[in-house]
Structure formats: structure tokens, C-alpha cells
């Protein structure tokens, strides 16, 4: 009786294993197919950018006659816009973190009475549509003369970056072992020294995460740029691309080359930052 049931179990296991193997193969094919569909626009962007200009739909599937004509034109026409985007996005990251880090620290570590209500308000502020903020800012910027300025765009993008960064940093700092901060107090560190020498280095990963997402948001911002700039003086690449498409619809090569160039900083950042997003930094602080 026991021998027959153990044989039965063994054959069931084998069948299941075979099914799993078949299932695994099917899953892989399905996964690759989905990935192919997702990545096809990226491939098409690179493909078109490396060929002679013209209508995108007429471009051959493979870039056999490679030309960098599109890139040369993209640099010539959009180089300034790319630089503007870089300055605005980097400025937003720096400004957002400068404001968000001490705010998150205060909300997380000090026994602030209404900390949770403040955090809820910050969360709610994230739900306000961008266009509402942009319209409100337009009125204010017109009065204080921040329209068509890099500083204006940095502040506008930071209006999204700061609350987001506070939420990310606060969540991390709340999980930080309190005893480490108490050890710093006993060692003679005041609140500011504790923030600079202990909390911020320990929060490296969450700072990278908050900074990265603020950069990505600012880099891809279109709404604030469209609302808060009225001339060509200060124009980020998103807006530049938009104007470009309307003006050069017949030369897709340079449009796609600009898109490729606009994607590079975010790709580089994501590749370098991903290990910080995943890893923890409190290892060894406490048991």
C-alpha cells in the first residue's frame, strides 16, 4: 500500500515537473514577446535616428546605411534646449533635496505634534493636477517676474519634487534606528550635526531615489515648461521637441536623434542609481 502510494506521488511529481518545464518555456516566449512590444518604439527611435531623414513610416526596418546627419542637426538645433533641461533638472534635484531632507528629518525624528497631519497634507498636495499648479504659478510668476527664467522652472519643478522627496526621505528616516541618533546625541552632536554627519549619510539610498525621481520628473516636464515660458529664451528639450515636431515633420531623423539624446541622461542615471535604490545602508548599525 505504502509502496504504491509513494510511486503515485513520484509520478505525480514528474508530471508536474514536466508541466512546469513546458509552462516555463511558454512563459519565457510570452515574456520576450511583451518585452519586444514594449521596446519596439525605442528600437524604432534609434533606427530612424541613424538613417536619412524623411517620413518615419518609409524608413527601412534595419539601419543599413547609417548616417549621423540627424544627430548633427539635433545638436545644432536642440543642444541649447538639452543644456537648459540639464540645468533645470539638476537645479530641481539640488533645491528639492535641500528643502526636503531637513523637513523629512524634523518630521521623522523630532516629536512634532502634527507630523502625521503634515505628511497627509503633503501627500494630498501630490494629488493636485499639475495644470492647476501651473496656472496658479503663471499668475504668481507674472507678478514677480519669474516667467521665462531658469529659476522659475527650477522652483516649479521643485513644487512636485519637494513633497515627493519629503515622503520618500521621511519613510526611510522613520525606520532609522533611534539608538543611532541617541548615540550621536551622547557623542555631542546637535540636531544639525546629527543630520549632516549621521542621518544624511545613512539615508544615501533614499536620497538617491528621491533625487532620481525628481530629476526624471523635471527632465520630462512639459506642462510647467509650456505654461511658464512664452519665448525661446529658456526652453527645455521637451518643449523644444514639441516645437521641432510641428516644424520639421518631414525630417524624422533629427527628431528621433533629439529623442535619443534626450533619453541618454535618464538611462545613464537609472543604470547607475538602480543599485542604490535596491540596497540598504543601515547594515551593521544595529543587530
Amino acid at each position: 500500500m505504502s509502496t504504491s502510494s509513494s510511486l503515485q506521488i513520484s509520478s505525480n511529481r514528474k508530471r508536474r515537473h514536466r508541466n512546469n518545464r513546458h509552462g516555463g518555456w511558454r512563459h519565457t516566449v510570452f515574456g520576450v514577446l511583451i518585452l519586444g512590444i514594449l521596446l519596439f518604439p525605442v528600437y524604432w527611435m534609434v533606427n530612424v535616428s541613424l538613417q536619412q531623414g524623411g517620413a518615419a513610416a518609409m524608413t527601412p526596418w534595419l539601419p543599413i546605411d547609417i548616417t549621423l546627419h540627424g544627430y548633427a542637426k539635433a545638436f545644432q538645433d536642440q543642444g541649447g534646449h538639452l543644456l537648459t533641461s540639464l540645468i533645470v533638472a539638476s537645479g530641481s534635484v539640488v533645491f528639492s533635496l535641500l528643502v526636503a531632507a531637513p523637513a523629512a528629518y524634523a518630521l521623522a525624528v523630532f516629536r512634532v505634534r502634527w507630523a502625521n497631519a503634515v505628511l497627509l497634507a503633503i501627500l494630498v498636495s501630490q494629488m493636485i493636477p499639475g495644470i492647476v499648479v501651473a496656472n496658479a504659478l503663471y499668475g504668481a510668476y507674472t507678478k514677480i517676474g519669474l516667467l521665462n527664467s531658469i529659476l522659475g522652472l527650477i522652483l516649479a519643478d521643485s513644487s512636485a519634487g519637494i513633497p515627493f522627496s519629503i515622503l520618500i526621505l521621511n519613510a526611510f528616516m522613520r525606520s532609522m534606528p533611534l539608538s543611532v541618533l541617541e548615540a550621536a546625541r551622547i557623542d555631542g552632536a546637535g540636531p544639525l550635526r546629527t543630520l549632516v554627519s549621521v542621518v544624511l549619510p545613512m539615508s544615501r539610498n533614499s536620497i538617491v531615489t528621491a533625487g532620481l525621481f525628481t530629476f526624471l520628473f523635471s527632465w520630462s516636464d512639459f506642462l510647467f515648461a509650456l505654461t511658464l515660458t512664452t519665448t525661446d529664451d529658456v526652453r527645455p528639450v521637451t518643449l523644444g521637441l514639441y516645437v521641432y515636431i510641428s516644424g520639421f515633420i518631414s525630417d524624422w531623423s533629427s527628431v528621433m536623434a533629439t529623442s535619443v539624446l534626450a533619453s541618454i541622461p535618464t538611462i545613464v542615471l537609472l543604470v547607475f542609481a538602480q543599485r542604490y535604490i535596491a540596497a540598504g545602508t543601515t547594515a551593521g548599525a544595529v543587530k
Partner: peptide, 11 residues
Amino acid sequence: MVFQNYALYPH
């Protein structure tokens, strides 16, 4: 003070 969970600065 020596803490229960060491409280070392990990960085």
C-alpha cells in the same frame, strides 16, 4: 553609553 543594539554609525 553602550546601547543594546550597538548603535554604530554604519557609514
